[in-house]
Structure formats: structure tokens, C-alpha cells
Nucleic acid binder design. Structure first.
Lengths: 158, 158
DNA sequence: TATTGTTATACTCTATAACTATA
DNA sequence: TATAGTTATAGAGTATAACAATA
């Protein structure tokens, strides 16, 4: 309600303060805004490692799942295979990961961290943990756990 | 059969079930997954109105803020001005919005819903409310309110 | 001098079709 | 026949620089 007819002109309303209450009542809108806010800080902090969020996710999954295949990465992260190829090639060229033939499937290649990749991820995961602490600082520890639990209820199949 | 691991080969591990527990402990990862899950359903439901999530957000803000300017939309939704121009033009061509000169700023144009635009948004907001009900069905009503409250604590400046 | 709206443009992200080699 | 990985390419989304009209 910000129409301000200060005179005799045609009553064309203008807006002083934008009312966002409707959008702020939607789960999807809030989830998207929160994700973008966290990712923005994530981008800044990971820049020193030259890692985007998706690179971090890929390397973290390889770190915790040595021998994981490209197809498994795609399925887990919702990335399409053609779009993963370039990332994997780049990470291999940087010598943070290495491909090894899959032990039981001649079509597939198992992905592994190199030693320098393992060191990089130790540092990067420490930075990520630090960032989590800061994000969670806006919440109580209990609220942070609750938030993650509720988000999982939203996106994980019931 | 590319290799028969009889025990002598190099011990190359492979992955049966991908361990995602590390990533699932991060707020940003979960917020992003939840946002993408909701937006995916949103895309499907809004297809009958030929509205993407961003179009819905823009029209909803115009509906609740008659006379809002492009610049105000950009600031509220985090869209860059050059990227809004095409959207506004398309919505005007569809005759769901109309531009009127801003009553006190000759540079700006106030944005308004047309009658057909108002009808479209009545239907679209009803569909969005229905979707929210379904998303929230995975949560209790209290959990849904808590989720939105915690998400806001994450992305709104303290 | 600063701001609104705009054009042009580049870069990133995501999506589709088709090929190869193995299963 | 189906799947893992790859190539090429198209489309959508997001970014910066610069300009005209107005403040």
C-alpha cells in the first residue's frame, strides 16, 4: 500500500518500500535465497584453492569414495555426464586426481585423489568447516541441526 | 572380463554405495539440493501458465507492489538490470503487464499488472500455494514454519 | 555527477544428440 | 541391447562495459 497521490495527477501508484511478504512465505524462495547466500561466501573462501563449489563437491566425494566413477558422481550430484568431462580433465591436468582402470568394469575409470589432491582437500575441507561454523553462528547449534534435518526432509525421497 | 582379481593385482578400490555423509553435513549443500528439488516441481506446475520461477517472482512482486520499478525488482530479486529488460519486454508483449510513467521520476517506468495479468497471477498463486502444501506435507506445519524462519536467519543480514 | 533503463556482448551453466568401447 | 565415457553443440542463465535520458 504505497500509493502516494500527492497531487491532482492521474492516480498512478509508486512503491516506497517493496513488500516481499508473499514470496517470503514460500519454502522454495527462501531455500534458494539461503543457498545463494551461502554459495556466495563459499565462492570467496574457496577462491584461494581455485575451486568452485562443484569442484569441491566432486573432490570431496572422491576423497571419501576412492575409486568412484564419473557415472556415480553424476548420479550423486545431479550433473550430466557431458558436463562432468571437462571438470574431471581439468582436475587431472592439475594433478589433484588420477584415473585408474576400474577393477571389474573395463568401460569405467575409477577416480582417486593424488597426494597433492589429498593435501588440497584437507585444507579445503578445513576452510569449509570454518565457513559452516560462521553460517551456523547465526543459528544455535540445535537450530543448525534442525535446519539440515528439515532440508533433507524436503529434498530426499520419502 | 577385463581383470580377474585373484588377489595378486594392485589393490584398486571401487565403490559400491556412494558415501555422501560429509556433504550432507554442510548447510549450503542441503539448501541447494532442497531449492533445486522444489524449483523442479515448481517448473512443472507453472508450465501451464508459461511462467518460469523468475517470471512468477517478478509478476508476484508487481502484483503486490503496483508501480514498482525495474530497478526495485532487480534489487529485491538479485537480478542485474540488463537481464531484466528482456523478461519485462516479453511480459509486456504477452499483455500481462503494462508500463506507466513513474509519477515522480521521469527516468523510471512503473510496472502494473493488466487485467489478464491479474487473473493469471490469481491462478498461478493458487497453484503455488497448492505446491507449498505438498512440499509442506513432508513436514508438519510447525516444521515448515521453523524451516522458513531458519532459512531467513541464514540469508537475511543480521 | 549519479541513476534508470537500455544495448551489445561475453562467459558460465545446463541440456540434447550421437559416437566408441565395453558389458 | 544396454551402459560408461566422450565429443560437439545448443540453449539458458549471469556478468561487465557503455550509452541516452533524466535526476
Amino acid at each position: 500500500m504505497a500509493s502516494s497521490p500527492t497531487g491532482k495527477k492521474a492516480d498512478v501508484p509508486s512503491v516506497e518500500n517493496v513488500d516481499t511478504s508473499y514470496l517470503e512465505g514460500l519454502v522454495g524462495y527462501n531455500a534458494r535465497r539461503a543457498a545463494l547466500a551461502v554459495i556466495e561466501v563459499f565462492l570467496e573462501r574457496m577462491a584461494i584453492y581455485d575451486l568452485r563449489p562443484v569442484d569441491f563437491s566432486v573432490l570431496s566425494l572422491i576423497a571419501h569414495n576412492p575409486g568412484i566413477t564419473s557415472r556415480q558422481l553424476c548420479g550423486t550430484l545431479g550433473i550430466l555426464p557431458p558436463n562432468l568431462v571437462g571438470m574431471i580433465n581439468a582436475l587431472e591436468k592439475r594433478e589433484v586426481i588420477a584415473r585408474q582402470p576400474h577393477p571389474r568394469d573395463g568401460r569405467a575409470m575409477g577416480l582417486h585423489l593424488t597426494e597433492s589432491g589429498a593435501k588440497l582437500m584437507r585444507d579445503a575441507e578445513r576452510t569449509a568447516a570454518q565457513l559452516e561454523t560462521e553460517v551456523a553462528a547465526r543459528l544455535t547449534p540445535g537450530e543448525a541441526r534442525t535446519l539440515i534435518r528439515l532440508l533433507k526432509k524436503v529434498y530426499l525421497p520419502a
